[in-house]
Design a protein around this nucleic acid. Sequence first.
DNA 1: GACTTTCCCC
Length: 630
Amino acid sequence: MSRRCSSIFQKTGSLLPIISSASGGHLLSGGRRPYSLKPPGRSSSPCFSQSYLHISSLLQSFVNRKAIEPGKQLHAHLIVSGLGCDAVLATKLVNIYSVSHSLAYAQALFDIIPKGNIFLWNVLIRGYAWDGPHERAVELFQQMLDSGLEPDNFTFPFVLKACSALSNIEVGRCIHDRVMRSRWQTDVFVGAGLIDMFAKCGYVSEAQEVFDRMPARDAVLWNSMIAAYAHNAYPLRALALCRGMVFNSFKPTEATLVTAISASADASALPKGREIHGFSWRVGFHTHDKVKTALIDMYAKGGWVRAAKTLFDQLTEKRVVSWNAMISGYSMHGYAYEALELFERMKEEGRSKWLVPDHITFVGVLSACRHGGLLELGWDLFNSMAKDYSITPTIQHYTCMIDLLGHSGSLEKAYDLIGKMPIRPDSGVWGSLLNACKIHRNVALGEVALQKLIELEPDDAGNYVILSNLYSIAGNWEGATRMRKMMKERGLKKAIACSWIEIKNEVHTFVVGDKSHPRSAEIYAELEVLEGLVKKTGYVAYTMPVFHDVEDDEKADMVRCHSERLAIAFGLISTPPRTRLLVTKNLRVCEDCHEVIKLVSRIVEREIILRDVNRYHTFREGNCSCGDYW
DNA sequence: GACTTTCCCC
């Protein structure tokens, strides 16, 4: 059968117009209604009936194998034989097109066949939920309701996935209501879909309500709820839920571990992550590449790049995700050379394995260039994305480039690039420009950037502070005062800076001038000692009376008790000599602290890793891995 | 007939 098809239809690339224009209807013998072709001959010719069944099962095998080309050939054959619109066969064809990401074909065929079957709708909704445009999935769902069909336990998960992708809570809520009125409210697939939808829209408590209401749960449902917390910045609740899962006699799955590990990476709650790493050995998941990839990310984010690399080398199969995790791991630490070298290796090793860098790989390498100040290489990579890999740059890639150009002092070029962007620039883009303006003291462009930022996020105090500082640095006190006044009028307060450090499985948090820690007296004594030693090196504190963008230090002497210094001092007095310290800060590190920490690293002979909002700084022997470029 | 969760970027 298939051989005969292929001999008749060697080239089926132009099938689409045939489907959509005539659908083969004109090929049917005159007068017969195209849709009335029941599985023909079931009663008439046994031979025909047999071949009909054969075609049907052949189509099913194409679905399973996602065999689009044979599917197209058979479709063409069916059109010629007058079976192009047979409801059963056409539904299978729509399914083939849908699973093989050829939605244009699926839609064209869908449009001309009878639509009484829920399966047919589901398959097409699934196609749009997977490949987009996601709005189409929602539209189809609506059309389906309008046509009088009731959604089933497959329809809901599909359309909910589309809502998740769109972060469309309004539609999500409507669907939720409909589920509650249907008999599928206790279905675990529908439940998991609802949890995921609420979580991706940012409504964790509603996700939790869905979870609580489920009369019977399965592992996937638990995993969905764990992921809901993990993705909404509640890593500790995610981890607590993992324990709850085990407590309720559910065996953790690979997804449980992967989610839990990535939750630990976000909290930089490395001790928890290490526990889970140990746990993965006990349950036998440590050999799984996905678990390893999550661990690579976790260790890299926790400052243990070498541990991450060891795991990376152990992978049985390096997928794009694994390469990406390691490349970004290097990049965020400022190891631009290692990141780029790995990228070269990825391209080389990938050649024989169908492994191609994706848009995230490019975010990784471009931010490596950004942290390393490699302007020319950055441009080359940016240009090669579209040219050699057919990847359309996203806002993230543009942000990297604007940051890179801005940092290097090419402010006008950065501004030009913003103007040329085919995507609407967001606050990240303008924020990068504003920051670059501050570094290079460009007041005029800084004002432009702030104006845009105010339009986009009027309530973000940080932007006003940066411009205020820029004014101060440029000696424009009037401008600085105006910014402060503007903030006051709008009731905006700067974010409170805080830093935290983990000592012996416990996380200690400090804010500026913090005296609440039980060992506060010792911490301040240590700071004083350090200050004396730092001064001996000839260092003079940076006491320019600026309205600091990172902490509330209107009094210059407040700089000495910035949160990161308190955390470091505490780390020094609570750990044995030469122990590496890892401090995390919620904002950017200030110039003065950066300078002082470099000196401290030499004086106390310690490696100090400071993770700020943007990147990692590894201070060692008086230097920082960022090369003072951040 | 098919479906829900997980790792890489922001």
